[in-house]
């Protein structure tokens, strides 16, 4: 049986096609899900891709949160279904409170688009088990609302429970100011991605789906691990 991974399209989503492709490259079936449809078509996992859903009106992810498809996803995620939010998808996951904290405008106010070095801090989640803990990867980063913030108490809790999944460790080109080379957007504690306590819901700002084939993206396939991780999880489940 093939693992089926749903990929949601909201109005304003950009990366749904790349995400579907990444799912297929990893050897799974990609199932398109429409924002107005509560039916999840019996998928085994869901990816919320990047883009500017609902024009990012009000706040990034704020309106998508109330779409019919999200009602079903929130319910299933709480029941343990693996969910990955990439970029705008991460913003949606914080707005739904499936993940703690919030995303704000980059501290330097610029849109950023570059290859970004990350360290995988937690290789035990549903979406990162193909990596080694401490492994360094490079995948594209492209956003303007990428600054992760949360209360000190929440940040301490995330650190203590090992729920920081990926952290920015630099890789910015020489043209950037020194601080920005390491941390591209002012995210607290260099956090690029986090998980919920159960480890089934993961959100990150950089884009693994753009780095799954050598021809495009960073020229490496460092992002593929997110998709092979979930395959491994689903076939052994």
């Amino acid at each position: 049986m093939t693992a089926r991974v749903g990929v949601v399209t909201f109005p304003g989503t950009l990366d749904d096609r790349d995400t579907q492709r990444a799912v297929r490259v990893a050897g799974m079936e990609a199932v398109p899900l429409w924002h107005r449809d509560k039916d999840l078509k019996q998928v085994d996992a869901v990816v919320l891709p990047g883009g500017f859903s609902y024009g990012d009106y009000l706040r990034a992810g704020a309106i998508s949160r109330f779409s019919p498809v999200m009602e079903s996803i929130i319910e299933q995620a709480k029941a343990g279904m693996p969910v990955l939010g990439i970029c705008n998808g991460f913003q949606v996951l914080t707005e739904t409170h499936l993940l703690p904290g919030a995303m704000l405008r980059n501290n330097h106010l610029h849109f950023i688009c570059r290859d970004q070095k990350l360290r995988v801090e937690n290789a035990d989640t549903a979406w990162t088990s193909s990596y080694e803990s401490g492994q360094e990867i490079s995948i594209p980063l492209k956003n303007i609302d990428g600054r992760y913030v949360a209360e000190e108490r929440v940040l301490d809790e995330l650190e203590a429970e090992g729920r920081v999944v990926v952290r920015y460790i630099g890789g910015g080109l020489g043209g950037y100011p020194l601080e920005e080379r390491r941390n591209p957007n002012g995210s607290l504690r260099d956090i690029a991605g986090i998980t919920n306590a159960a480890g089934n819901v993961v959100g990150l700002m950089p884009h693994p789906e753009h780095a799954v084939e050598p021809l495009v993206g960073t020229g490496r396939t460092d992002g593929l691990g997110f998709f092979t991780s979930i395959l491994k999880k689903l076939v052994t489940a």
Partner: peptide, 8 residues
């Protein structure tokens, strides 16, 4: 619940 995100 909507107009403000009380996290921030």
């Amino acid at each position: 619940t909507f107009l403000a995100n009380t996290v921030i």
